[in-house]
Amino acid sequence: MNPDEFILSMLVNNEAGVLTRVSGLFARRAFNIDSLSVGVTSDPHISRITITARGDDYVKTQIVRQLEKLHDVKIVELMPTTSTVMRELVLIKLNIAQKSRAGLMEAVAVFRAKVVDLNNDSVTLEITGERSKCDAFVEYLRPFGIAELCRTGLTAISRGRKTLKMDAESAQHN
C-alpha cells in the first residue's frame, strides 16, 4: 500500500440509499474513494463497507468524523495496515486460442490463481490476495491481451480476536 493510503471499515444500516449517503459525503467534502466494497454482515440489518482512500492525517480525521455524523453509519474505524488481513478478488478474461497459452498456466500456478472458465478461444482467471499480488498478476497477463477485467475492491478484517462492533446504544437503536 502507498504510505498515504488507508482503509476504513464501517458498519451501516442495511437500507436503501445508505451507500449513496456514504459515497455522496466523500464527493461533497472533496475526498476520493480508491476502492469500495460492500456486503451484508452476519446480522441481516447491518452491512459492512470497506473503503480505501488517500490522504494525510487531516483528511483521515475529517473523513472519520464526518462519516460518524451520518445517522445510518453505526461505527467507523481506520484499519491499521500492520494488523489487518486485506483481500481483493480479480476476474480476468483473456480471449486467446489454446495454442497461444504457453506460460499462462505456469503463471496461474505460481500466483495461485484459478481458472474458472475455459474454452477454445478464451480463458477466465480468478485471483484473490493482497492488492500488490493482484497487481503483479495483472501486469504479467497484460502481454497476453486482457479482454476484460473486474476487481471487487479491497475488503479487510483485523487479525486476532478484535472485531468491529457497534456500541450497545447504536445496536439497540437499530
Binding site: 440509499g17 449513496t20 449517503r21 455522496g24 461533497r28 455524523k69 451520518l70 445517522h71 445510518d72
Partner: peptide, 11 residues
C-alpha cells in the same frame, strides 16, 4: 426529494 436534500439535511 430525499435524493435532492441528502447533502443539506442531518438525515
Amino acid at each position: 426529494i430525499t435524493g435532492v436534500t441528502m447533502p443539506i439535511t442531518k438525515h
